[in-house]
């Protein structure tokens, strides 16, 4: 043997130390594997099977997908997912960033503002949806209020317009999530070394340029965290839409989560519901895979230059 034998008591302790991290991580890894990978594969299988009211594991091919895409309600829901998802994620990120930058200017009563902007997140989606339904409602909300103030011709009836109702969902979603984005951005802005700003001031950069070129690039990880979290909020949006518009007027604000729920638990169409869920997963991959590829490419480029 090359090495001096370790004292007898040290050896079991060392193997325990090596084993402990794995042991601690194992349950959550197993749970993640079960709930994410296994259930996702199970859904794929069901989507490709003859399942209707009850699971039936005989292979049926892509009939459920074909059925899904023939359905006008699904195409609206899927389009809404992209429209809502894009506007909601970008809107909440930008508004949150703006609020964070404003609060970062050492405003007075900062804690109060922070609390006010963060509060919407503490309110359940159902309450948010209900309150905003009242606000948007032409006969009880903003429209009536402005008309009562004397502007008789004022119209703000997006919630009852088929073409505009989805934007009320976007506005409500942004209202709820931008405070959360603000909190994360503010934490990021506070972590930026104040000497960077001083150095840039001496370098003669205007404040807008300091933010665009120095501060915001250095909190890029926060942008990614915020956008990923908002994206999964967007995809699972369900109760907000249900409380705000119930998917209406007509079917104009239906989203995939409502559609999947409907098929699976109301109409007994497990196969088609699973197919719809797989489409949502694909939509998510459409965003995440290019992002992953981009990150990988950047790392490789950085290593090549290092």
């Amino acid at each position: 043997m090359q090495y001096a034998p370790s004292p007898p008591s040290a050896r079991p302790r060392r193997s325990l130390a090596r084993f402990l991290p794995q042991a601690v991580l194992a349950p959550s890894l197993a749970a993640t594997f079960l709930y994410v990978v296994v259930f996702a594969l199970w859904s794929v299988w069901i989507a490709l099977s003859n399942s209707t009211l009850l699971p039936d594991y005989s292979y049926a091919g892509f009939i459920h997908f074909a059925e899904l895409w023939r359905n006008h309600r699904w195409t609206i829901a899927y389009t809404n997912l992209f429209l809502f998802g894009t506007l909601y994620v970008i809107g909440a990120t930008l508004l949150g960033l703006l609020l964070a930058i404003l609060i970062d200017q050492r405003v007075r009563a900062e804690a109060l503002w922070r609390t006010i902007f963060l509060y919407p997140l503490a309110i359940s989606f159902v309450v948010t949806g209900t309150v905003w339904r009242w606000i948007f409602n032409p006969t009880s909300g903003v429209q009536q209020l402005v008309r009562d103030l004397g502007w008789a011709g004022f119209t703000f009836d997006w919630i009852v317009r088929r073409d505009l109702a989805i934007y009320t969902v976007v506005i409500t979603g942004i209202w709820q999530a931008s405070g959360f984005a603000m909190a994360l951005f503010l934490a990021g802005l506070r972590a930026v070394d104040p000497d960077l700003v001083k150095a840039a001031q001496i370098d003669g950069a205007r404040m807008s340029r300091i933010y665009l070129r120095i501060i915001l690039p250095s909190i890029r990880p926060i942008f990614i965290a915020v956008m990923v979290i908002l994206l999964q909020f967007a995809i699972k949006t369900f109760d907000l839409v249900l409380a705000l518009t119930s998917g209406g007027p007509g079917i104009s604000t239906t989203v995939p989560a409502i559609y999947v729920y409907d098929l699976m638990f109301q109409r007994g169409q497990l196969g088609e519901g699973a197919a719809a869920a797989i489409m949502v997963l694909l939509a998510l991959l459409l965003v995440l895979v290019p992002y992953g590829v981009w990150i990988g490419w950047q790392r490789r480029r950085e290593r090549a230059h290092g």
């Binding site: 070394d193 960077l196 150095a199 840039a200 120095i214 250095s218 890029r220």
Partner: peptide, 8 residues
């Protein structure tokens, strides 16, 4: 802290 711009 040198205050080098980290992303540049």
């Amino acid at each position: 802290s040198y205050a080098l711009y980290p992303t540049m």
